[in-house]
Amino acid sequence: MTLSYVPDDTLAHRLDPRSKLLFQVGFAAAAYAYTTPRGLVVLTAVAAAVLGLAGGGPRSLWSYRFALPFLLVAPLVAGATLGDPWFRTDRAFETSLASYRVLLVLAVAAAYVRSTPVRDSRAAIQRTVPGRAGVVLGVGVALVFRFLPLLTHDLRTTREAIAARGGDRLPVHVRMRLVATAGINRAFERADRLGVALSARCFAWNPTLPPLAFGRLDGVVLAVSVGLLVVAVV
C-alpha cells in the first residue's frame, strides 16, 4: 500500500501546507537534539498525535519498510568491535535510539503526505520560492506527480515484454539497459508533446498563484514549530 493523499476533513487537512512543512522541520530538529529515552517518549506522543490528527495510523508507516533493514542492522554494526569486548552495548544503545528517532520523523512526514493534495503543495512552493524559480519548481513538481504513474506503467510494460521474450536469461546490465532505454524514450516522447501543450496553454512566468488560506490554527502550528526549532538549537 502506497502512502498518498487521502481526501478527508481532519484538522491536518485544513492546515496550510506551509505551516505543516515548517512543523516537520521543527520536529526533526527537536528529535535530533533530544535523542534521549525521555526526549523520545515525549516525541513519540507528539508524532502519534500528529499522525492521528491527519487520520493516519501505524499502517501509514508501512511504505517506509525499506528503511527497516538499515534501522535494525545499524545497532549491531555499531555495537560490534574487533577485539575485546567484541560487542559494546553502549554504542548499540546509542544507535538504537537514533534508529527509533527515524521512525518518529517519518510518522510526522506521513501525516503531511496523507493530508495535503498536490495542488496545495504546488501553491506552497510558488508562494514561498520567489520568481521564475518558483514557477519552474511548482510546475515541475506538479508534473512529477502527474506523470509518475504513466512512466511506471511504461516501465512495467517494457519489463513484461522483455520477460515474455525470454529476456530473463540476459545479463543484468543488459536488462538494465533495455528497461532504461525504453523508459527514456517514452519519457522524452511524452515530454516533447507535453512541452508543446504547455506552450499552447500560454505557460507563463507570471501566473495567478494558486490559492492558500493561512488560518488562526496555522498561527498556532507556526508558533509551535518555531518553538521546537528554538528548543532544538538552544
Binding site: Q24, Y64, A67, F70, V105, F145, L148
Partner: peptide, 20 residues
C-alpha cells in the same frame, strides 16, 4: 511533498530529514 518516488514507493519530507 508526497510523490511516491523514494525507495519502495515511499515519500515525505521526513525521508530527506531523517531517513538513513
Amino acid at each position: 511533498l508526497g510523490a511516491p518516488v523514494f525507495s519502495g514507493g515511499s515519500a515525505g519530507l521526513g525521508t530527506l530529514l531523517a531517513e538513513p
